[in-house]
Nucleic acid binder design. Sequence first.
DNA 1: TATGAATGAGCTTTCATTCAT
DNA 2: TATGAATGAAAGCTCATTCAT
Lengths: 180, 180, 180, 180
Amino acid sequence: MALRLFSQKGFKGTTIKDIAREVGITEGAIYRHFRSKEDIIEHLVERITGEIRELIREEVLTKKDIRKQVDSLIEVLINYAFDNPDAFRFLTVYHILRENGRNGKLPGNIIIQLFREAYAGGKLAVSPEVALSLIIGSVERLFILWELGLLKMQREKLIEEVKEVIEKALFDVSDSMRTG
Amino acid sequence: MALRLFSQKGFKGTTIKDIAREVGITEGAIYRHFRSKEDIIEHLVERITGEIRELIREEVLTKKDIRKQVDSLIEVLINYAFDNPDAFRFLTVYHILRENGRNGKLPGNIIIQLFREAYAGGKLAVSPEVALSLIIGSVERLFILWELGLLKMQREKLIEEVKEVIEKALFDVSDSMRTG
Amino acid sequence: MALRLFSQKGFKGTTIKDIAREVGITEGAIYRHFRSKEDIIEHLVERITGEIRELIREEVLTKKDIRKQVDSLIEVLINYAFDNPDAFRFLTVYHILRENGRNGKLPGNIIIQLFREAYAGGKLAVSPEVALSLIIGSVERLFILWELGLLKMQREKLIEEVKEVIEKALFDVSDSMRTG
Amino acid sequence: MALRLFSQKGFKGTTIKDIAREVGITEGAIYRHFRSKEDIIEHLVERITGEIRELIREEVLTKKDIRKQVDSLIEVLINYAFDNPDAFRFLTVYHILRENGRNGKLPGNIIIQLFREAYAGGKLAVSPEVALSLIIGSVERLFILWELGLLKMQREKLIEEVKEVIEKALFDVSDSMRTG
DNA sequence: TATGAATGAGCTTTCATTCAT
DNA sequence: TATGAATGAAAGCTCATTCAT
């Protein structure tokens, strides 16, 4: 997959020939499907952010209260990352690099709204941006450690632990007692 | 600085000519100071990880208990990132991209030991890897939001909030009450 | 032909652009046929030594006695040199220069065996190495003189004269009388 | 010596820095002694052809008859080549390569006159150009074999054998009997 | 529609030469 | 006079893109 190449070698570091070989067609044929290298990248971003957005819409937004939503978000993100490592890594690289002055459409946009409402309603003890960073940042770092082979934990256990930790971080204890 | 270029455009995406122009010398002159482009990158990594490692040694490792160490670590990381945005961004890019099969020397190596000891001693309610990811990941994401202008909060306030949140996440409440 | 360039300007002195212009294609296209400049040189060496080796096998090795073989060798070498001046000159340059520490495969290897056998069998009055040097060295020098326009003689006459001279040099007179 | 570098790596293949390092001074200092790289080469050619010309004048031209002169020439050439391998090799490379369209001043110019006179006087059975090529070419080839370690013979013995062979090649037997 | 040879701009690196010290 | 950093023009090579087949 071109994803693997882009996410490991960068955008300039991946050549059309690399991609053609990986996909099993020839250089020229690629230009039947995409107008340019840049176009390939944009399509990939679109696809991946679409997938994640869809998962969030189906799994996260359907939950009723903010705690369940956070739990679900963590589960969705970790599962997506570990099931689609190249895609997840690709997205991270895309967001960090600004090779062409792109202004990365963060898929967090849908989520931030959730946190804003919860924060406004007093159901979140932490400012929305910090909450979002806590979740996404943690997952990203854990993913890197996992890829480096430094994370021996089983996935189910990992998800549980992260849920627990994030819950403690984001919500008041009293609140937790009331709900729990 | 070459840092800015590398961190924004990637390693392949940054040309020697770019760097020369930025630094104000000619292309040829660069090769009197560095043997190759790769050499430039290695020197930058060395310098930045050295700086951060030094700060951690001076500020974090000198604290007595794990809570103070975590507080200090958060402060050091956020301050370094916001004071040296290009350097911090550079390091992030370096760790994610594997253009040449490099095995990024994560500066987190010194910190993980801290968490391992605290975890073994029962002073940390969370596994070391998750604790590390929580802190570093959050800071990285907050930094990205800040760079995108999506984080209006004042730095002092941000540090306080992150400290508070991480503390809740990492340590037991009872524990917190005893110490507090 | 790239041969002409390499043989006149040396290996470092001949640029890919030079070759491309000479051959009538662009620089990039060259790399579809050869992996590197070094690769071009190796192919040329292979081709020329192959051609000469083939000629020697067909013309020289098929002769019965050593005198006829020497005559044939002189004829083959002079004809090849004068018919393929660039190739012959190229080979000479290749053998003398050691730009990359190459250990030139001298095509003389096949011939030296001939002389060794003749020498061992008492049919050659001169040590094999000297005999070989006499023939190849003379032809090389005559070729240089010819290229500089200092050799007005007709080719046929030249071949005859060289044959005569070399024969006198290599074989005993008595021997000569017996055979002649 | 710069001679070694030029003769082994070619003119373009040898850098000013190479030469500076070899000679033990700095790049800039070279330009106090020579105007350019080309200038260095010309000086070297001048020196070496001068040395050989001088040897020929002293050793060869002072002999009375053509046979003694040929013997002496062989001795001078072989001794010079084996005592100054870099210089001899340099000259060979210089004569073959035409990097800048130079028209190599062959030091053979002085000798050819000798042969012309002998040929005109009936004392030489071979045309002057062939005679010259025979001697110089043989020595050059023998030198290459020697450098490649393919010539085990002792120098004195080599000189004797070459003298003998060349004598047989260049002069009539009857003539030889008369003189010998 | 697919191929892959060719293009040509641009990249990293080298190097003869200059010049401030 | 000697040094060696800097210059800047190539050099070898790569690669996104085009196009004849």
